[in-house]
Design a protein around this nucleic acid. Structure first.
Lengths: 215, 215
DNA sequence: GATGACTACTGCATTTTGCAGTATAGGGTG
DNA sequence: CACCCTATACTGCAAAATGCAGTAGTCATC
């Protein structure tokens, strides 16, 4: 029952256990099927967190066996359900983006124009692949209801965000590739005042109106 | 000269030192002025990484003094410049998003509709504040050239991305708030098949065409 | 009954983080 | 000019998170 503040991973675990009981591995697997795109943490942490929750009395264990192998099933306790509800009433940490590719864009004056072009192309390809994954998943949920049918509406909200997020990366990368099309190298364009001014202004214009996803 | 792979923070440091010499504190401060939105790491790491780079011979030190206090100035060695160039020729890690607010959206069937509404509003407000910061910074660079005038064009590319990113969050949150407007609670809408189907479809429609930022 | 692929984790050495702690500089106040 | 406050400029350390190798059961195939 030691109760220092729980990490977000713990609430994800509680949230999954709120729907049904799972084994540790199933739980870890479920997290890997999507939520980890919103809260990326090492797989190892999923097992550590579970132990912590049991120690805190928020999750209960029960022994079963699949064949001859024993497996522990985990379930939410009333205290755990309570904790989840209380968490939802508090304020979330602001979103954070980790984007090494964009760091490279900023530093690309120390590399070749081909390095820059390749970086942008890889960003676009990666985003397109992930978009496809989310689109596929949405179609699957729409057709079958998915693993958490009681949360389909919430999944719909989050999924729309993710698709838009990847579309934004794809759109930006396409635009950036067009911008650098005629650059002789990664250094010279800094001197072209008109072009620089235009690039800086592009960002400011981009948001009017702030894209309505369903329109 | 121990050379296991360097972390991305190291390349950011090398990239800043490629423009001019800095003290450790100035360097840490510069990182806090923007790049940390693309590569968020604890401030502590900025000092650790610098020591590592000196040990590896990629960065050289020189003693100066501001008043009576001695301060160490850091500068890039030829080996360091080389390392930076080589890094740019390799492949970047894919972007990762850490978004606790969206995790709460997914779990919000265990909280009140007001919790959900508040979460969405906080997300929107936070994104609007950050967008304003980036817009301000762009105006400042446009007017004065900024601290890295030789990189204005690259900053323009990255800044356009960041503004679009925050606009996407703002736009999505606004849309989501409109969607939940008439929800009686966070649980019932799962039963409304038409609405769920509509929510899931919204995401798929959102990306055509994949928004050209400057258009 | 041996083999290889998958399931289901645990142990442990490193890395990273968060934060408290230290110490000097410079400016304003009585 | 002694004092206090705030900003600068970091370091030390305990605790948390990560990466990855290791272990061991299961199941299908030959």
């Amino acid at each position: 029952m030691t109760n220092r503040e729980l990490p977000t991973t713990a609430y994800i675990t509680l949230g999954l256990l709120a729907s049904r009981d799972w084994s540790a591995y199933q739980l870890a697997e479920q997290v890997g099927r999507g939520v980890d795109q919103l809260w990326p943490r090492a797989e190892r942490q999923r097992y550590n967190t579970l132990k912590r929750l049991v120690a805190d009395g928020l999750v209960a264990t029960r022994s079963e066996h699949a064949g001859k192998r024993p497996r522990t099933m985990y379930s939410l306790t009333p205290a755990g359900r309570d904790e989840l509800g209380q968490w939802l009433a508090t304020t979330a940490a602001p979103p954070a983006l980790e984007f090494e590719g964009m760091v490279r864009v900023l530093m690309s004056d120390h590399g070749s124009i081909d390095d820059l072009r390749r970086t942008l192309e890889e960003m676009r390809a990666d985003a397109a692949a992930k978009r496809a994954l989310f689109a596929e998943h949405a179609a699957y949920i729409s057709a079958t209801g998915g693993t958490f049918p009681e949360r389909r509406h919430l999944f719909g909200l989050a999924n729309t965000f993710m698709i838009g997020h990847f579309d934004h990366i794809i759109g930006w990368a396409t635009w950036a590739l067009a911008q650098i099309e005629r650059w002789p190298d990664t250094v010279a364009p800094a001197a072209d005042d008109a072009q620089v001014r235009e690039l800086l202004a592009a960002g400011l214009r981009a948001g009017e109106p702030p894209r309505p996803p369903g329109a």
